[in-house]
């Protein structure tokens, strides 16, 4: 018996701009159906570009190479025609700001039903009924009346629920959520996270965030990105409890933890993320890393370890070593 093929397998994904600048430099990532993978990193690390590339929605001037296979379907390098059949049907996406991501002059129900108009042969009335069902399934009360309302008439949380309905309408195999809770109130954030966790049981959920606190709540596995590369990946508990890459450890130290109060200021990571186009020899984190040596002038590869995770570092924290 052969091992079942991985449901989503991203191989050596690279995203470059016409100027020659490479923003994503070889991302490898795989996930099984029902698994939630958090892609974590600071702004500009390439996590959003990675997600957009999976839908062929890169901004003008950017292009992707490599491969991303979702249940037998290649997503990278496809023509517009093929991509249109994938978007909305095989892969759905929830964006950060639900207000600007919804069409301001169209009732929300119609915006959900549009996915069905594009990808199914359902009748107009069936599409409308299905849109209301979807709204009910994401916890929108009085959905039939809400469906006729405009985005500005809904609260932020309700708007994000509408966005999730849109992403789920085509029953996708891959659900991408790009900072879906960042623009929401804290109390609403938890509800939206719970909803995503519940509704993503049959899909791969690729959850993009810069917030380590959110990662613990939603993800099965986590992949930490820095300067266009994945520097550490592994089961969420293992990575959060015992980060191996110095960057992951530093990121975790900069998250406030009620169990471990800090005196004075929260620790920050010295230095800055490399600027777009800036070339750093060897490990990209080297200039900011306390553990860096001459060996780090050679770029480290992502190497699996015995925890089921991988780390790209010449001097990782030992497994016995505490994160502090």
């Amino acid at each position: 018996m052969t091992e079942p093929a991985t449901f989503l397998r991203i191989r050596d994904l690279r995203i470059g701009f016409g100027s020659g600048h490479e923003a994503v430099r070889g991302v490898d990532l795989s996930a099984e159906r029902g698994e939630t993978v958090a892609l974590v990193g600071e702004s500009g690390c390439g996590k959003s570009l990675t997600a957009l590339a999976l839908l062929g929605l890169l901004p003008p001037g950017a292009s992707a190479t490599g491969s991303a296979v979702l249940d037998g379907t290649e997503l990278v390098g496809r023509d517009e025609r093929a991509l249109r059949r994938i978007r909305g049907a095989r892969a759905g996406m929830v964006f950060q700001d639900p207000m600007s991501s919804l069409n301001p002059t169209t009732p929300v129900g119609a915006q959900i039903a549009e996915v069905l108009a594009i990808h199914t042969r359902m009748s107009r009335s069936a599409r409308r009924r299905r849109a209301v069902e979807l709204m009910e399934s994401v916890g929108i009360p009085d959905a039939a009346a809400r469906a006729r309302q405009m985005p500005h008439q809904l609260s932020g949380g309700m708007r994000q629920r509408v966005m999730i309905s849109i992403a789920l309408a085509g029953r996708p195999d891959l659900l991408i959520a790009d900072e879906p809770t960042t623009a929401l109130d804290v109390t609403v954030q938890a509800q939206v996270l719970a909803l995503l966790r519940e509704r993503a049981r049959d899909t791969v959920l690729l959850f993009i965030t810069h917030d380590m606190g959110v990662v613990a709540e939603i993800a099965d596995r986590v992949a930490v990105m820095y300067a266009g590369r994945i520097v550490e990946t592994g089961p969420v508990r293992a990575v959060l409890d015992a980060p191996r890459h110095p960057y992951t450890a530093a990121l975790l130290r900069s998250v406030p933890d009620p169990d471990r109060p800090v005196a004075g200021e929260l620790p920050t990571i010295p230095g800055q993320v490399p600027a777009a186009g800036e070339r750093i020899e060897g490990c990209p984190f080297r200039p900011r890393c306390a553990r860096a040596t001459d060996r780090c002038l050679t770029p480290p590869d992502l190497t699996p370890d015995e925890t089921g995770g991988s780390v790209a570092c010449w001097h990782p924290h030992e497994l016995t070593e505490a994160a502090s």
Partner: peptide, 19 residues
């Protein structure tokens, strides 16, 4: 942003313009 959402639904150029 809503244009990107429409494209993420699989909308083509004609639908994007007219709808």
């Amino acid at each position: 942003d809503y244009v990107r959402t429409a494209r993420a639904k699989g909308a083509g150029t004609w639908r994007l313009v007219t709808r």
